[in-house]
Design a protein around this nucleic acid. Structure first.
Lengths: 173, 173
DNA sequence: GACAATTGGTTTCATGAGAAACTATATTGC
DNA sequence: GCAATATAGTTTCTCATGAAACCAATTGTC
C-alpha cells in the first residue's frame, strides 16, 4: 500500500473523505500522496544520510555544516544573516558558531560599526576542512540525483521554488 | 544571493571547488543549488506550518498525526508497521500511540496470534477527529500546490519517488 | 542628552527525539 | 522440551532544539 497510485482530486491527491453517503464513512488520507508527508520523509532520509557522513568524517552537525557552507561563499556574514538564510533558530546558530570557533574553524571579529555584531570568517583550518568536505558532499549529491535527467532536476528545483514562494504567501496572512 | 541561478555542473549544481589554479582557491558550495539543503529547508517550513495547525486546532503533534493518518486507511496496523511506513523511531511511535490512547482516539487490542503485538484501531472519537482534520489538511495542501500545474505536480512526485529509490540503493551499500 | 524601544546575540529552561537497555513473548536448533 | 536467539514494544538516559528570559549595544523621540 505504500506505493499505490490512486488519483482523483485536482492533482491526484486523492484521499478525500470518500463520501460513501450515509454509512459510517471514514475520512481517509493517503499519506503516500500527501505532499507534506512525502517531502518530509524524503528530506529526513537525505538529511540522516548526510548527517552521518558529516559526523563520521568531520565531526560536525548539520547546523555547523550550514554555517560553514554559507561562509564558504560570502565573507561578510553575521549570525543574524545566517539565521535568515538558513531559517534556523538564532539559538541554534549561536551554538553552531560557538562550536566552530572552539574548534578553530572560524573566527569572529567585532564589527567596526556595531559592537553587538560579530563578523564571521573562516580560518585556514576551516577552509581546509571545507576543501575536503565540499567535494564529498557534491559527490554524494551527484549520486543521489544520478537517476534524474537534467530536465527533471531543473524542474524539481523549479517546483521547490514555487512551493517556497507560495508558502511565503500563505504564511503572511 | 539567496536566489542566484548559477549553473555549471552536470545538473547545474555548480558550487564546485572552482579551482582557480594555484591561488588559495576556496571550496565553495552554493547551498541554494544544493538539493539536500533546499529540500530540507522546504520540508521544514511546510512541516512547521502544518504542525502549528495540528497543534492549535487538534492538540496533536506530527508523530500522532501520522499514526492517525495511517490508521485512517488501513485497519490492520501494529506499531511495527507504522515504524516501517513512516520511518519513525519505534520509541517515538510508541509514545505517539500511548498519547493517542490516553486521549481515547485509538484503542489497542492484543493480537490473537502474538501476545507481543497489539492491533491498533480508531475509536469513534478518533474517526470524528479525522473527519474534521483530514479536509483541513487537504485544503491546506491544495493551497500550497495551487501554483503548480497538474503536470508539475505529477513530475514532482515522480522525482521524489526516484530519489527515494536511489536513496535506498545508496543506503544498502 | 536622556529615556524608551529595537536589535544582535547568549543563556536558561522545558520538551521531544534517538540510542541503548530492558521486558515479555516467540521462534529456532538441538 | 529446553536453552539460545530474535522480535515487539516500553522505559531510561542523554542530548539537541526552540521559546523565552536576558544582556548589551544601538536607534529613535522628546
Amino acid at each position: 500500500m505504500e506505493a499505490d497510485e490512486q488519483s482523483s482530486g485536482e492533482h491526484g491527491a486523492c484521499a478525500a473523505a470518500d463520501g460513501r453517503p450515509g454509512d459510517g464513512s471514514r475520512a481517509e488520507l493517503d499519506l503516500a500522496q500527501f505532499l507534506p508527508y512525502r517531502l518530509n520523509r524524503l528530506a529526513d532520509r537525505i538529511s540522516d544520510e548526510l548527517e552521518r557522513m558529516y559526523a563520521e568524517r568531520y565531526g560536525i552537525n548539520v547546523a555547523q555544516w550550514r554555517v560553514l557552507a554559507w561562509l564558504s561563499h560570502s565573507d561578510e556574514l553575521t549570525a543574524k544573516k545566517i539565521c535568515t538564510y538558513t531559517n534556523m533558530d538564532k539559538a541554534r546558530v549561536s551554538r553552531a558558531i560557538q562550536a566552530l570557533e572552539d574548534r578553530g574553524l572560524i573566527y569572529r571579529e567585532p564589527s567596526a560599526h556595531d559592537q553587538r555584531v560579530h563578523d564571521l570568517h573562516l580560518t585556514a583550518a576551516g577552509e581546509e576542512l571545507l576543501a575536503s568536505l565540499v567535494p564529498d558532499a557534491q559527490a554524494w549529491e551527484a549520486e543521489l540525483v544520478a537517476t534524474l535527467s537534467v530536465g527533471e532536476y531543473r524542474d524539481l528545483f523549479n517546483a521547490m521554488g514555487k512551493l517556497e514562494r507560495q508558502l511565503e504567501r500563505i504564511g503572511q496572512r
